[in-house]
Amino acid sequence: MFYILKKEENYLGLLAFTIGSEFALGYSLFKLPFWSIVSVILLVASLLLSVNHARRTDRFYRVIYNLKTSWLSREVLFSSLSILFYILSIVKPVFYYPALVFLTAGVISSIIIYMLKSRPSWYKADTPVSFVGSIFTMSLPICILFNPRSNNYYSISDNIAIEIISNHMRSKVRTSLNIVSILISLISIIIPEIIIIVEIMNIVSETEHRKEFYEKVIYYGLPKV
């Protein structure tokens, strides 16, 4: 069997959208300050960046034309609906619930998009673990920052530890950042203010890991001569 190591071209929009939507989901899930406005900004900005991935942006409206079988169509629809409900929730907080449901559906769709058998580096447990993990690793430190008495210190450590295991310590940068992040999050039980360092480290770790996800794609392909 032959594998090709290839780099995904023009992936920054996709990276921005996956990280942005996961951050927005975690941020609003825990109802952190200005959750509706922050979620709208994160989602609109990252969705606009991801549109650039299509070479024919003049036809981008067609992206939702295959809801029957395409998870990309579903992802864009669910995420767009969540933006609508987050905007409505600024006026009527009750729209928080449909916004959260649709954004969750959008993130699940993102995960399934990448679970492709033709790309063994994506078709493994680390894909859902890192996508779901980043929802929590990027939002829980902010939770603690605003509520130091919460018991979220251990949740952060657990999440990051699971990410290290699912990554099989393949990425040294990811593993190092995550180990240091666990240590600092445990120290922050005594000095809560330093949790901001964990937040920064987790954003860097998730972004670096996602960059590697797009830049080192193992793909079944034709034999090369």
């Binding site: 070479r55 024919r56 492709l116 033709s118 790309r119 034709l222």
Partner: peptide, 20 residues
């Protein structure tokens, strides 16, 4: 006339059959 050029099909095909 319907393709938006997203390239998602190239991700799914393991035979490198699709070309822009």
């Amino acid at each position: 006339d319907k393709c938006i050029g997203c390239g998602f099909c190239t991700w799914a095909c393991p035979y490198e059959a699709l070309k822009f």
